[in-house]
Every structure is written in structure tokens, then in C-alpha cells.
Nucleic acid binder design. Sequence first.
DNA 1: TCCATCTACAACCATTTGGTTGTACGTTAA
DNA 2: TTAACGTACAACCAAATGGTTGTAGATGGA
Lengths: 143, 143
Amino acid sequence: MVVDGVAAGSGGTDEAVDRLFHALADATRRDILHRCVRGELSVSRLAAAYPMSFAAVQKHVTVLERAGLVTKRRRGREQLVRTDPDAVGRARRALDELESAWRARVDRMSGLLTDDAAGAGPGHGTGPAPDDARTNTEKGPDR
Amino acid sequence: MVVDGVAAGSGGTDEAVDRLFHALADATRRDILHRCVRGELSVSRLAAAYPMSFAAVQKHVTVLERAGLVTKRRRGREQLVRTDPDAVGRARRALDELESAWRARVDRMSGLLTDDAAGAGPGHGTGPAPDDARTNTEKGPDR
DNA sequence: TCCATCTACAACCATTTGGTTGTACGTTAA
DNA sequence: TTAACGTACAACCAAATGGTTGTAGATGGA
């Protein structure tokens, strides 16, 4: 489970989410996504637009593809790249989950402790944290 | 930090967006975000929950902090970590931008070039792409 | 056929990452 | 005061990244 099961649920596997955000964490790749949202482009045409080698762009496209953000389709000797709109939604969902968790917390404590929430809890209680270390058992060493 | 301004439309500077997504691209860090959304936690308490050293967790928190996803606040000898809900929204906005670009394209091309448009002409031209390399002149080499 | 394109992929490199240990310093509790 | 706790940070490492060049396989056009 992974506590984040939830998380997992939304965007996919933990690893899938890793790949998704990792792919988005590079300006060149984000730019490729933008260009290929407007229409399909061959890899070489894309490559011509950046100050780097064809091979480098090819690798970026591979990263995007493994993350499920783009799909490739062959047309003759070219490979046309297109952004998959659904994937963008998938990434959003992973974030929405975080946001909703936050909202839930706000709900629950709408009046309780003010700023020092922490103070209260842990105190020794320590309740909160105790942790669930379990949870991570598996997620930790992911990379 | 970050957010200084302006910059690229969505979530801030290109680099800020890089840091944002990079920070989200690791299951351990996402888990930290989840835990700190529920309430503040000290770094050592967080560390106790993962199968790695305190220093490693400390580094993860630093990455999250530089991305603007969490804030730290001192309480005595502890450093309490808390997820910043606004940051999540910022990340969402970056994605929304992509999605809206996609939507716009669908609008505009309700029937125009499909796949072969390009084929036809000189190949290239065609609508989609000529690369207008509009500007990207330099977004590429960011890292 | 011959040649120019577009891709795919391997090999190599410099820099970053994610982790570890070890040390130093401020704070809290005995 | 002294000891324990929580944090900060430096030094070091293996592996992953982002790039480069070079070679080779398909495909399309002259």
C-alpha cells in the first residue's frame, strides 16, 4: 500500500509518478511538450529548434515517452511526436490529491489549535507521528 | 524566492518550475509533503520514518524548501516543516497552461491540418510547424 | 542505383543526485 | 555543568543525467 496508495491510485505507480514529474522537470522537455501540443512534429524538426544535438533531443523525447507524456507515430522515415493530453491530466491528478489532503486537514482543524498545531500534538503524545514508518518501508529507497 | 516575478507565465521562472517538478519527482519527497500537509513535523521526526539517514532526509527537505513546497519554522532546537499549499497550486498552474494550450489547438484546428497536412507540401510547411521557433531561442539549455 | 534524410543506439564525459559518515554547534533537560 | 537531542554542514561515493560524437539501418527521391 503504500499509504500513498492514494497517490498511487491517481497518477499511477509511484515509479510512474516519478517518471512523470522527472520528465516535467526540464525546460527543454516542457518546451517540446508545448510544441507538440500544437501539432505533431518529427524528431529532427524538433531538434532543429534547440541548440543541442539531434541525439540529445532524441533522448529528451524518449524520457517524455517513457513518462507517457507523448506518443510517437511513424510516417515514412520520420517519427512524429505528439503530446498526450491525458497525461497532463494524470499529473494534475497527483497534485490534486495533495491539495485535497491539505483541504481535509484544514477542515478537520477549522478551529482547533491555531498556529501551533504541532505543539499540541506531538507533544508527546507524539501521537501523530509515530509513525507510520511502516509506510515507507517500501517507498523510501525508491530511486 | 522564487517567484520573483514575472517571468514565464505559469509558475514562475523556468528555473523555479524546474525545481518544483524536480522536487516532486521523488517518492520520498512526495511522502514528506503528504506528512507535512497533515501538520508540522520536525526534521528528526520525519527522518525516523524513513530507512535512511537523518542527513539524507535533511537534504530532501532542503530540496523541497528550495522549490518552495515547504517552509521551515524554528521551535526551540527543532525545525518544524510544513507543506505550503500555495506551492501545490503553483505547480498545477504550470500544468494548466499546457492543458489550455492543447485546448486552444483543438479549437483552432477543428478540421485543418490533420496528419498529412505536412506531407503535402514542401514538407514542411504546413501549418503546424514551421518552427517558428518562436523564441525558444534559448530556453533549452537550462540545466 | 546512389545519395540524402531521419532514426536508432553505443560509447564516452562532466556534472548532479541521493546517500553515507563524521564533526561541530545551539538548545533542553538532568 | 553536563549530557542528550536536533540540526547544520563538509567530505566522499556510486549511480544517474544531460550532452557529445560516431556508426549503422531504413526510407524516399534523383
